[in-house]
Design a protein around this nucleic acid. Structure first.
Lengths: 189, 189, 189, 189
DNA sequence: CATGAATGAGGCTTCATTCAT
DNA sequence: TATGAATGAAGCCTCATTCAT
């Protein structure tokens, strides 16, 4: 990616995470990025475009990493374990991003809405695919893979964010173990 | 509650859910509520106060309903079932609210931050309590009740919102069954 | 008219005449008018609206005065004399306005274009009517009343503006006499 | 003239006429001219300079054509006829230019103001000269040659522009005949 | 108490101009 | 000499908040 575009991206995530998208001004972003205010508009149509580009970019990176990491893994169970681990690591590393995504994803009408929905869908579908695979192989028993997929995403996403917000850091190991255990074996003794 | 305050609350949730808190103007809220703009300031310090009061109010209602509904239920398992059901019903009924909460909760520094954290904590703690209880009674096996509690909240919250956003309505029955099953018995066959 | 709207109008003509519409900022107008910047937007949709409202208002006033003044006058010749006089007086009194009108009338596409054309037409039509009347009464000999009307307007308008710009003041008497003479009796000896 | 300077000139009139000087950006002009944005600044100090150079250039061309065309003509009456014809033809051919001139000429303080006034004066003076000449030769009867000259310019300029704006084209023949008739013989029967 | 006209700080965006290549 | 990426001053407009009625 264009290095200046990347600098802007990094500055934007940082600020957006700290103060929200609407709480952050274009001026702040340009200062954080060390470029002129006008330069932002050479790389992004407007603020809305910057926000949704950032969101797409994040989902794409996450989806990409997940896809890459589960490649070669055979069993659906092991894939799920890997997915949880990868996501938690990603959230830990990019907790700014995680917060930004969680907050802004459930966005309101904007001109890039459809685009975002698609990207988000790509991401969900990967997890859903693993679960469907597990069902076919008789490894899993879920009736509705979509509910199961979104449930897993919800578990990982909110625990990571909860830890980040209330404890200051994402406790990857602790969360991973428990989440995997619950998702795979359930709570019952 | 003061009826005019309630009218403002209802108007605010509706608008906030449609257009986000920052996308909604005080004028719009006052018009939706059928009162003068100045009147809003008799019931709330400022916009920030309105937003966080609304958030507190929502969490309190939800916590309240949950507490009331699980009263008298004996086993932790049954309590969890009830909690999931009650939450889904609440989200279905107040999906505007659900969207608003999910989006605005992970809020940024504001003068009511601590207050909100506390309210949110109350809510989490109820679920956590049920799980601890289940562990003590040897019904549950979780190592970390907090992770388990937040996981459950994440599952319910994000599936509900996902359905609302992508399918237009919260499919309570379908989600409830699957979420309870996963949370209690896990995915493995 | 609303007194505050009028204050804004007066401030705007003054500034527009001095520095052009695009050279004048909304802030300058608000300061000249002694009101807050936001107040301008209570009385006018936006800057474009302010400009075209001002233009319509001016044409309407001018048309109004002309219509009122020629009422009761019998011969077309005397009406033309009065029209020239009234216009010159109006231009002298509102030379800011005259300059603004001349410069901005030949405007470029904007959302009020049609409205302005109509107003301008009303004004032209009054003069045209007098000429047609004179032709019917066999007083005048023009073949094309529209060319004649616009010619008269052009004579008055540009001489007035020329005097204002190059001599600092509109020499009503001198211009009136000569313009009327040329228009009615021509240049030939 | 330098061919690149000419390309820029042509691009500028076209754009200025379509969208006004302030509505046209330097980028648009450079694209229309097929040169880089920076190149404009090799040929013109700044935008103001481009605008006023264009204005001077136009007046000079017009004055030049008029001077050339009336050369050799004897009577002031015939010269006036020629002047009207030449101007209308010029306006018809360069109606973009005509619109631009009328709109921008009554300009506001800028650093080239004096220069423009002088150029404009040259142009006025030619017409004035013919009228003075006619008076001396006892052909004309005007008391104030300046008023008469500016009146003629106003008639031609505004009728041409009026036709262009309201009918889409300058009806040279019709306007010429009527304007000449009025100016020379007046309206009276 | 209730209202909504008035305010002005501050946001987003544009664009004339510069300057390194 | 020609270019166009970069800049940042400055404009238009919005909207939370106040306060006279």
């Amino acid at each position: 990616m264009n290095p200046k575009r990347e600098k802007i991206f990094n500055a934007a995530v940082k600020k957006f995470s700290e103060k929200g998208t609407t709480g952050t001004t274009m001026k702040e972003i340009s200062q954080e990025a060390g470029v002129g205010k006008g330069t932002l508009y050479r790389y992004f149509e407007d603020k809305e475009d910057l926000v949704s580009s950032l969101m797409s970019y994040g989902f794409e990176r996450l989806t990409e990493v997940i896809k890459r990491e589960i490649e070669g893994i055979e069993s659906a169970t092991d894939k799920i374990k890997k997915v949880v681990e990868v996501q938690l690591e990603f959230y830990k590393k990019h907790c700014d991003f995680c917060r930004f995504l969680t907050r802004e994803f459930w966005g309101y009408k904007n001109k890039f809405e459809e685009n975002i929905k698609e990207i988000r869908s790509d991401y969900t579908v990967v997890i859903e695919g693993i679960i469907e695979e597990g069902i076919e192989e008789n490894e899993f028993k879920a009736k509705d893979p979509e509910v199961a997929a979104v449930s897993l995403i919800g578990m990982v996403n909110l625990t990571a964010l909860h830890w980040f917000m209330f404890k200051g850091e994402v406790a990857v190991d602790k969360i991973r173990e428990e989440v995997i255990d619950i998702f795979l074996s359930g709570m019952l003794n």
